[in-house]
Computed example of a mutant assay.
Amino acid sequence: MNSVVDKKPRLKTSAMIASIAGEGQVTRSAPFGHALVELARAKTNVIGMTADLGKYTDLHIFAKEFPERYYQMGMAEQLLMGAAAGLSHEGAQPFVTTYAVFATRRAYDFIHQTIAEDNLDVKIVCALPGLTTGYGPSHQAAEDLALMRAMPNMMVIDPCDALDIEQMVPAIAAHKGPVYARLLRGNVPAVLDECNYQFELGKAKMLRDGNDALIVSSGIMTMRALETAKALASDKVDVAVLHVPTIKPLDTETIIREAKRTGRMVIVAENHTVIGGLGEAVATALLSAGVSCTFRQVALPDEFLDAGALPTLHDRYGISANVMAANIKQWLA
């Protein structure tokens, strides 16, 4: 049987995009790696540890500056977490990096039993959170926040840009106890105002006010929310953006106060499945406080996601600024 060969040239797309920055967007290179180096200069007990992913979590910058304080554990995430626990018991403050799927799915029990149960001072900083790679379910950590929120003693952070990451590093180092932080690596967008923004553990920040809708967001969805608000402003739709970098503990006081303002729809936007993340945390807080409002979620569906180029996937699953803007206009109509 003769097979038909398609002679048309195939478009080349990248399934893994090193940066989620848009064309022409201002970025900073490896903010986590540089911030950790600055921290380690002041704190001699800070160490860097990874499971064969130093280059892909920006920890190679730390390794170059402090080779004697850098531990490459190979492709053994369970060993990585167990060793971090042991070094913490000896007085070190480990900053542990890997991909979010490998920490939260492969090494979950080791984190739970050796780090969280003893409330150890280990910072787990993980790249490729949510839908920030197109490699499919093996690498898409769409449920990492739900898993880590459920773990006692664990603080959970989802920074939105380079400034957030730079300010997050010394803040989580000052916190005594385990932290899970999502990481944007490579060329990271810079969208926050350096003059007016300050990262604070457990605090939400109002980045933009508006009377028609309130977007409560974290991670890259704060960047998308700001883009969406700007686009909707041209259509006379006034949208506020409340950035929530700390998922646990949640700043329920600020969220409830802003949600109580009459006449505003509350929309939670997150780069995570609709189950167990920021959306459910906010909904629970509002219901518990007796706040009555129209509530919507922008989040990933409860399913295994497709593989492909990120712009296509973000449009498909409704987390791009264009699709967000169209949906919000429809919800407000």
Rank of each mutant, 00 (worst) to 15 (best):
Pro245Phe: 06
Tyr135Lys: 13
Pro245Lys: 08
Met155Tyr: 14
Glu166Lys: 07
Val169Glu: 03
Pro170Gln: 05
Gly130Arg: 11
Tyr197Thr: 08
Ala229Lys: 02
Asp209Pro: 05
Leu183Gln: 05
Gln198Tyr: 11
Ala231Trp: 05
Asp193Met: 04
Leu183His: 05
Asp209Glu: 14
Ala231Pro: 05
Tyr135Thr: 14
Glu143Cys: 11
Pro249Trp: 01
Glu143Leu: 14
Ala213Glu: 04
Pro245Ser: 10
Asp238Leu: 05
Ala174Phe: 00
Lys203Tyr: 01
Lys203Arg: 12
Gly186Trp: 01
Ile255Glu: 02
Ala146Asp: 14
Ala173Asp: 07
Arg182Pro: 06
Ala190Tyr: 04
Ala233Asn: 10
Ala213Leu: 08
Ala181Asn: 02
Ser234Thr: 11
Asn271Arg: 11
Lys230Pro: 01
Pro189Gly: 06
Asn211Ser: 14
Glu270Cys: 09
Glu200Ile: 07
Leu192Val: 06
Leu145Met: 15
Tyr135Met: 15
Ser218Leu: 08
Val169Lys: 00
Leu192Asn: 09
Arg149Pro: 07
Gly186Cys: 00
Val179Lys: 01
Thr133Val: 14
Leu207Trp: 01
Lys176Ser: 09
Gly130Ala: 11
Lys205Pro: 01
Ala240Thr: 01
Tyr197Asp: 06
Ile165Lys: 05
Ala141Thr: 14
Ala240Val: 00
Cys160Pro: 06
Ala162Glu: 08
Asp164Thr: 09
Ile267Lys: 03
Leu145Gln: 12
Pro249Ile: 00
Asn196Ala: 15
Glu143Thr: 15
Met155Asn: 12
Asp209Gln: 11
Ile165Met: 11
Gln198Trp: 04
Leu147Ile: 15
Val179Phe: 04
Ala181Leu: 03
Gly219Thr: 06
Val156Cys: 10
Val169Asn: 02
Thr133Asn: 14
Leu163Arg: 11
Thr254Pro: 00
Asn211Thr: 14
Thr273Phe: 13
Val188Phe: 04
Pro178Arg: 05
Val237Asp: 03
Ala269Arg: 10
Val274Ser: 15
Met148Thr: 15
Ser138His: 12
Val237Ala: 02
Thr262Ala: 15
Ala142Arg: 15
Ala269Gln: 07
Leu163Phe: 11
Ala162Asn: 09
Lys248Leu: 12
Ala225Trp: 01
Gly186Asp: 01
Asp251Phe: 00
Arg264Ile: 04
Arg224Gly: 07
Val241Asn: 03
Thr222Trp: 04
Leu232Arg: 03
Asp158Phe: 09
Ile247Pro: 07
Asp251Leu: 02
Ala150Ile: 13
Ile215Leu: 09
Asp144Phe: 13
Asn271Trp: 12
Tyr180Glu: 04
Glu166Ser: 13
Asp193Leu: 06
Asp209Thr: 14
Pro152Met: 07
Asp193Ser: 10
Ala213Cys: 10
Ile172Asn: 03
Asn271Ser: 13
Val237Lys: 02
His175Leu: 09
Ala204Thr: 03
Asn196Arg: 15
Val188Gln: 02
Leu232Cys: 02
Ala171Met: 09
Gly202His: 02
Asp212Val: 07
Thr252Arg: 11
Asp144Pro: 08
Val266Asn: 02
Ala231Cys: 03
Asn196Val: 08
Ser234Gln: 12
Ala225Val: 02
Ile247Met: 08
Ala231Glu: 11
Leu250Phe: 05
Val239Ile: 13
Leu145His: 10
Leu131Gln: 10
Ile165Gln: 07
